[in-house]
Amino acid sequence: MVTLELAQIAFIDGDIAGNLAKVVGYIRKAQATSDIIIFPETCFSGFPTHENAPEYSQTLNGNIIQTLEREARAKGIAVLAGICEAQNGAYYNSAVFIDPEKGHIATYRKTHMWLTDQGLFTPGDQFISFDWRGIRIGLLICFDIEFPESGRANALLDADLLLVVNGNMDPYGETHRTAIKARAQENQFFAAFVNRVGQDSFGHQFAGGSCVVDPFGGTLCEAGREEMTLQIQIDPLKRREYQKDYHYLNERALPYQSEIEVDGEYSYLKIQ
């Protein structure tokens, strides 16, 4: 069993210190029974531009990661959050997973570039999954979930639970509500996304609607359009019960050609 806490928040573009402080506050206020608290895409900076990307972005050994590690350890909770990552002169739209004991243990870089990502972020070149407390977790970011291949990649990596950091705005709220249900149903795993609310500096109105769905695509919980947290306990290993009568991955007529690399508790699917 795992208890998720979805932290659907608003934040201020460019206010790195203020947004980090807000995330820290939510970690400290998290329910004592929560195992993982999840925040939206680029939640420390908002979406960057070519002009402000250097100040919006940070390396994976910078202050943001160090702070998340410290707060996760103090609270005894895992943290998943979206960050603008800088490495060797390139920028990535990334999701980082922080374990309360081990610290930063996984990074996923967004593979599908939406309009505001294009020409700014470097696409990630692989999907990942990793073992965490007896379950296998896969990660995606926002626009990724609109592509069936992204969900299928995580199924090939044997994910029990797909976690998505999201930054989806009007008029596309229903698009992601449909997409997360489809990815869960067609790959027979549990899935959750956590979206942003409020407005950004470009005037985008974010759609909220953070939710958790089961392997039939059924909604288990769903947020509205305001700042809020949702807590839910699920058993991701029960996805195997949804595969007793039929198993989409094994019964598909068109096999997915892929190269999966395994390194201990981590699995990677390279994009060809």
Score class of each variant (00 low, 15 high):
residue 214 D to R: 04
residue 217 G to V: 14
residue 198 G to W: 01
residue 206 F to I: 12
residue 222 E to Y: 03
residue 264 G to C: 04
residue 232 I to W: 01
residue 225 R to G: 09
residue 266 Y to N: 10
residue 224 G to V: 08
residue 244 K to M: 12
residue 241 E to H: 15
residue 249 L to M: 06
residue 233 Q to P: 00
residue 209 G to I: 07
residue 270 K to N: 08
residue 216 F to P: 00
residue 209 G to N: 04
residue 201 S to Q: 05
residue 269 L to M: 07
residue 215 P to D: 08
residue 198 G to V: 05
residue 258 S to C: 13
residue 258 S to T: 08
residue 200 D to V: 04
residue 239 R to W: 04
residue 199 Q to W: 03
residue 221 C to Q: 08
residue 196 R to K: 13
residue 259 E to T: 15
residue 231 Q to H: 02
residue 261 E to V: 13
residue 221 C to I: 15
residue 216 F to N: 12
residue 225 R to W: 07
residue 239 R to L: 14
residue 238 K to V: 11
residue 217 G to S: 08
residue 261 E to I: 14
residue 227 E to Y: 09
residue 223 A to I: 07
residue 234 I to L: 05
residue 212 V to F: 09
residue 214 D to P: 00
residue 225 R to H: 11
residue 214 D to A: 04
residue 201 S to V: 09
residue 223 A to P: 07
residue 199 Q to D: 02
residue 215 P to K: 10
residue 223 A to W: 00
residue 206 F to D: 04
residue 255 P to I: 08
residue 253 A to G: 00
residue 220 L to N: 06
residue 208 G to V: 15
residue 216 F to E: 14
residue 224 G to C: 09
residue 211 C to K: 02
residue 272 Q to E: 10
residue 220 L to E: 04
residue 241 E to W: 12
residue 249 L to D: 05
residue 229 T to H: 05
residue 269 L to T: 01
residue 245 D to E: 12
residue 205 Q to D: 01
residue 262 V to Q: 11
residue 241 E to R: 10
residue 237 L to M: 15
residue 204 H to E: 03
residue 243 Q to L: 14
residue 243 Q to A: 08
residue 257 Q to L: 15
residue 198 G to E: 00
residue 201 S to D: 04
residue 229 T to V: 15
residue 254 L to S: 08
residue 250 N to D: 11
residue 266 Y to H: 14
residue 253 A to Y: 02
residue 216 F to V: 10
residue 234 I to W: 02
residue 221 C to L: 13
residue 219 T to D: 05
residue 203 G to I: 03
residue 235 D to S: 14
residue 198 G to L: 00
residue 229 T to K: 09
residue 272 Q to T: 06
residue 271 I to A: 01
residue 270 K to W: 11
residue 216 F to K: 13
residue 198 G to F: 03
residue 245 D to M: 14
